[in-house]
Design a binder for these strands. Sequence first.
DNA 1: CTCCAATCGCAACTGGTGTAGCTTTAGCCT
DNA 2: AGGCTAAAGCTACACCAGTTGCGATTGGAG
Lengths: 197, 197
Amino acid sequence: MEAGSSKRPGGRSARVRDAVRQATLAELAEHGYAQLTVERVAERSGVHKTTVYRRWGSVEGLISDALELAKEEPWPIPDTGTVQGDLRGVVQLVRSGFADPELGPVSSAFVAAAMQSPEAARALHEFFVARHEQSAEVVRRAVARGELPDVVDVREVIRVAVAPVYYRLFVAHEPVSEQDADRAADAALAAARAGVL
Amino acid sequence: MEAGSSKRPGGRSARVRDAVRQATLAELAEHGYAQLTVERVAERSGVHKTTVYRRWGSVEGLISDALELAKEEPWPIPDTGTVQGDLRGVVQLVRSGFADPELGPVSSAFVAAAMQSPEAARALHEFFVARHEQSAEVVRRAVARGELPDVVDVREVIRVAVAPVYYRLFVAHEPVSEQDADRAADAALAAARAGVL
DNA sequence: CTCCAATCGCAACTGGTGTAGCTTTAGCCT
DNA sequence: AGGCTAAAGCTACACCAGTTGCGATTGGAG
């Protein structure tokens, strides 16, 4: 919790913080959330175990901290000229992110951690609020172009579009093909065109 | 793992198995997945700790076993006469299940456990395959009645309908209102009507 | 340049999860 | 009924995540 607003932002504390964050992401990418332990992160970062426990508290704390970072950096909203292209692009971005052998385990860890720790859940919620807001731009553009009727909730279109991908991955535990992703985007689009969103 | 096909199905083994299963569900309902431990289940069931470890192996094993049970019992597919009523009914069933103070934690535990243990993931996958198959009946009826055009994949309609509920609950960690659930069902219906599923 | 408060490193300790080896119980078969 | 064997019970303990108390170090204010 609030490991970024120390009283000594410019010295050893900062180095320690960065080392731990980097070690956390590396461990996550290599061994996944299930294997993630404070001791491994401490050893890998060269920071003492006690220090990590004091500043981050637990594995969930490490994840939450990493999430704060991830929330900051924006992601590339597609601009293909058509709603269908844009929406498909957004959903494919999600799909490919989890399929990536390096990013996948890290992103999955965020979802897993949020299911066990209220702290991580809050952080992940904030993350998705930001994501929805950014992604909804493709819907707003479509409405402005006259491609879609007035949409009640632009963020809902995004949710409906990406939800099937997450559902397959984390709930039903089914594989997600590119066709599946496109179909999910098309379904959300059809619903928006029909005026139900 | 296969705790149901013992060589002595009718005696003490069966009693032990039932006691442990019941204790698992009770613990899950009261304290949730995060607090679930083999020792508590053992103590509550009156079965010795080592016995539980031998037959179920771990917390994930207990969950997987409970899932096998849950998969068996069928659930009430709505039959309101219209696709919209039926689909909304299915999604509301999901929503209310997780909102229920007794069933909610147990169901959530299944999802959480599946994210950490491949064994539980497989069990949950099987569970959802069965659920999709059963729920898809409402779509088949609609096609037979001529309410929907020929649908390529009836199960996909179900997936798209329920996905937003799960997405809100377990990924974005947003509240899910009854309106949200209805809207998700309507969106899937619109997509099916448009012929994208 | 000096001091001091914050932070980190260290080693010993605690508590609880999971295991090993053995004994006892109870279901099933003749 | 009586024995045979699978399965449950029991004790002890090994192991590791997380804690604690204290001394060492560092960075910045004056």
